[in-house]
Design a protein around this nucleic acid. Structure first.
Lengths: 204, 204, 204, 204
DNA sequence: TATGAATGAGGATTCATTCAT
DNA sequence: AATGAATGAATCCTCATTCAT
């Protein structure tokens, strides 16, 4: 049982326990004591590694965001064509690794709390802006400029709405199906506002 | 100082104060004492009119749902054509009366809590089912049957996603714009999967 | 057991218990739970009647100051001649009613804490200023003007020093003896700096 | 990184940090971790060099007493005449080296704590007795025997009262002025109770 | 010698709830 | 019908202390 260099290990354990506890028992019931217990640690350590409970919650949200981003970036790296890139973003958002029911439930709880915790709000907004930025960048190549902004918002809202559905759903959600529906929505958006007459021109 | 028939009055006051308090201070900070104070009443009355705090929260959620339904039904009553009916549902969901920032924030908080409070979950699910049922009923007349279910889900998710956006947004949201985007999505859905060749046949 | 109008009663009980607990167990060991227990109340009531622990401590200090002032004012009301008035102030400061060992010990603890609690400091300073003001007012009639300020300070410091002695002393202190010594100090002050040649002139 | 003979160095560092921390943040906020951090050491070392926190506090008080004594003794060594010797004691008590605001504040905090920590009380009493003994020894040569005891007490109380004033004062205190006032008090004491008729006889 | 990880008790405070009035 | 007094458990957090390294 090592005694030095425990910081990153313990922080990781506590962040994981925080997400799991919030996801399973809800934000209101995720007390420091319960989180610590789930991490197999004493209540005191929490404040040894985090300034206070808020700092722990923020670290948890940062962890969730980081995992989501990694999921998106990995897929984006493999895509070239704008349509493929947007689909990569969609798939990234429903990537199985961070789309477990518990995790999604924790997301929702932290979102709801964000309204009253500035730092959580800030983190969430950064992520939302990044999602929109990714979508906008490629939609611009596929649609009439005047339609890009609404399409971006629409696609982002659809994705968030399906996250919300997953977070509230009792039974596990088929994330592949969600992906498919979002991609269908994308097709609708492009179909409504094509960069006529030669969509082939966008192929770099 | 009236002594009789106060029940509906007091319950209404407390429900309103609950929604306002949750919306402004967050779920975690909406204590019984604070809710009572905001309603201009003493802490004791709460348990005089509600079995416990949960019952009050449930009543608040029921109130929100009732207001939303009324907003939808009012508009539905004026529409005949399936497309108009779906647009009525959309407009109803973004009807100004229940789309105040505070109210939307309270919605989100109660949604998040629903995952861990069965009765809240039940109420929410009833409402979600009704929304989908409304949409499905009219989409069926506009699309190929095989596409109806996904389109229903997609439209419902888009609406929820825009609610989520409104709940998390710092600045007030232009609900008319949200409506417009949702209707545009509807157009896309119909355009992709038209009941060809004679959409006029659905008139009747 | 009455249930209404308990506020002043409970506040008084808690203030008394605070002074007693601090006096007997020391500032560091005067926890809210212990204070409440000594008052025969539950820990929760403390925050029903005081905003927080600081407010309780401040109320306790205000109570001590009020008692001291009353002791001084009562005696001052009976004195006319400046010398008698100063002696009344001295006697008032050592009046048996607020010179119990426990009370004096509580004084000291609150004084020490005042350095780090602005409101306590403010209260203490008001009282110190009042003591000096009382002394100065009458010393002015007894001494050369240039000597008044130092004499005031000297007399006030002597009184405080004897309070300190009492606060730290293991065995009970003879407050009458302290009074006598302070009065002797006063005689020395006047003797050193008489308003010659006719001190009788001050007799109004 | 020296490995041997660190004991006196570390103890000195910790004692200094203790006095500084108590003086600046108050007794209640002087935790072991904070003291160690201020000393630039880890929390663990404290218990390596001191049995427990009390031992550290006692060492700090001993250090304060030692510094005060040294200040008095140094000055006493230069004085022959009883009056000069008493003035040396007075000056020693207000010697600039241990009369910094922080130090005086730490004194007060430890005094207040002494009432509930026997060892601190013992140390303080030894010092108080030494002060009185010094004063008594020389006052005996200056006054009528029957007046010596009260004069001793009076002078000691005045000095303590001025320390208390300094400890509680917001702005820095002019220790030279305090010295002057104490000496004036001494003059008053001697003037009131001279060893008549030939005070010159005491010279030698 | 020194570190910092870890513990668990105890700190102030908030809370839903009950109940005498 | 309504008040607000009262409870005691649960909250987050701090602390002195111990100990593996």
């Amino acid at each position: 049982m090592p005694k030095r260099g425990m910081r990153p290990v313990r922080r990781g354990q506590l962040i994981g326990a925080t997400i799991a506890t919030i996801g399973e028992r809800g934000f209101a019931d995720a007390s420091v004591v319960r989180i610590a217990r789930r991490a197999g640690l004493s209540p005191g350590v929490v404040h040894h590694y985090f300034a206070d409970k808020n700092a722990l919650l923020e670290a948890a949200m940062r962890d969730l965001l980081r995992r989501l981003n990694r999921s998106v970036i990995t897929r984006l790296a493999l895509a070239r064509h704008p349509v493929d890139r947007i689909k990569a973003v969609i798939d990234g958002n429903f990537g199985a690794d961070q789309f477990h029911p518990t995790t999604v439930a924790a997301w929702l709880a932290l979102w709801a709390q964000a309204r009253h915790a500035p730092e959580l709000a800030r983190l969430r907004e950064i992520n939302a802006a990044r999602l929109r930025s990714n979508l906008r960048h490629d939609l611009r190549r596929l649609m009439h400029p005047a339609a890009v902004e609404d399409a971006t918002f629409s696609l982002a809202a659809l994705i968030d709405g399906m996250w919300l559905h997953a977070a509230l759903s009792r039974q596990p959600v088929d994330s592949a199906h969600l992906s498919k529906i979002a991609k269908c929505h994308l097709d609708g958006l492009i179909g409504c506002n094509p960069l006529s007459p030669t969509p082939e021109s966008i192929r770099a």
